[in-house]
Amino acid sequence: MAGAAGQNQALPTGMKWPADQMLRDVRAELFKVRNARDTVVGIASRTAARDGSGEIIDWVLHLPARGSMFVNMRPEALKGGFRRGELQAGSREFAPLSGLMSERWVPNTSGDADAPTGRIELLTTYIRRQEAP
């Protein structure tokens, strides 16, 4: 699902993005998350918005029976098309972790007519936070 005000065609067909002016600069996308073996392991949202405090890009990854992660990305893209962000909070097995996540657009070069135009690659690096004595 990808929705944003003024977008020519919202996905999926039939979805109506709220016309409210307040959500004019908000774009939300939902994804299935695949692991390195290309197996679906979870679902995720990526929300991009612009307001008085600047551009916001937030990810939430939800892996059933494992927990969820909330990552706030730095809006500026780094060399190589990367964007990097910090794990702000997590639940269950991700609750005691802190770390970084990067996102990168990887175009599809397979040439298959039915293939999507590309995918977003997420790389997470985290460590267990030391608990206060």
Partner: peptide, 20 residues
């Protein structure tokens, strides 16, 4: 909803739902 939205049919996410 809407009808044509992709469904979460894969085994690891079959017992999940998402709403915006």
């Amino acid at each position: 909803f809407p009808e044509k939205v992709q469904q979460l049919w894969e085994a690891p996410i079959r017992l999940s739902s998402v709403m915006a």
